[in-house]
Amino acid sequence: MTVSKKMQSAQLIGMNEGLFNCPICSVRMGMVEYSRLVCENMHSFDLAKTGYVNLAPQSHTTKYDKSLFEARAKVMSSGFFEPVLDKLISIVKEHVEGIDRPVLLDAGCGEGTHLSSIHSQLQIESVGIGIDLAKEGIVAASKSYPGIIWSVADLAAMPFQDEQIDVILNVLSPANYAEFNRLLERGGIVVKVVPESGYLQELRKAFYGGKPHKEETDPVERFSEHFDDVVTDRITYAFTLLEGLLASLIQMTPLTWNAGDERIGQVLAEGMKEITIDLRVIVGKRR
């Protein structure tokens, strides 16, 4: 008999219910009837048909819609991020070696491709959790990647108990460092990926004349204010764009959100043979 995705997820969440905190009143939660998470004060959160649970206390509207995550999944499946993922897998593997049943949280997981790739390579019993405020990303993740806990949740108030997470991933996503430190086990690490000056420079040139995006603060300096033993590594390479991939890349990146349909059509007509990936991986330990 085939077990439904909802039941698989319910069983997985039930095994790990001690990780959860009610997003409304911050007390412990438990799985009830393999269908919902309920806290001690009876706040209840149903599992969706595909197995994810919405633990965002308020509904949010974002620009990250279903078509964007479909485009992103297509781009990521092309090998676009492979050298970066190889680096992340290496970092995570090294850190969790010797830890019994480590817990890995992807804060801002989108459609789940990064977390799924990393979690599947750990080769030890571990718990993967992916959260994002964009519901469509979590819907896509829960459909594509069973065996991982997927939840709509707010990074500003993540629905988990203190000191439960061994590794937090934060890939090209906003961060909440106070929350990260609250959630991390002693000795736990954050692995953050930020764009460098050359990231997608061909798209910036096409849509903005190559004007560089300037961060208000140095991301490494800001990160170092919150974590110890900080190390960084810059990963830069040119990725060949196969036929049809440019359209998906344009659709997935916020770089093009303010571009008109006419200009997007022109860029697609002109074509683009390769794109620059230029990212910095920052790793730090809980303070």
Rank of each mutant, 00 (worst) to 15 (best):
L169N: 10
L133K: 10
D154N: 15
I168M: 06
M158D: 07
V167A: 06
K143S: 00
V139Q: 10
K135V: 07
P146W: 15
G147F: 02
D162F: 06
I149Q: 03
E136F: 00
S151D: 10
N170M: 11
P159W: 07
F160I: 08
V167W: 02
W150V: 04
Q164T: 01
A156C: 12
D166Y: 00
Q161P: 09
G137N: 06
I148V: 08
I168W: 04
G147E: 04
M158E: 10
Y145D: 02
L133M: 14
S173Q: 12
L172E: 09
P146C: 13
K135I: 11
L169F: 08
A153H: 12
A140V: 02
I148D: 12
D162K: 10
P159S: 13
A141D: 04
L155S: 14
Q164A: 02
Q164R: 03
A153I: 12
P159T: 13
V171M: 05
D132N: 11
I148G: 10
V167G: 07
Q161N: 14
V167T: 03
A175R: 10
A140S: 13
L133T: 09
V167C: 05
I149W: 00
S151F: 00
D154Y: 05
A134G: 02
S151A: 15
A134H: 02
A141C: 07
A140N: 11
I148W: 09
V171P: 05
E163Y: 09
Y145W: 05
S144V: 00
A157M: 14
Q164H: 05
S144L: 09
A141M: 01
S151T: 11
L133E: 11
A175F: 06
S173A: 15
W150H: 04
A156F: 15
A153S: 14
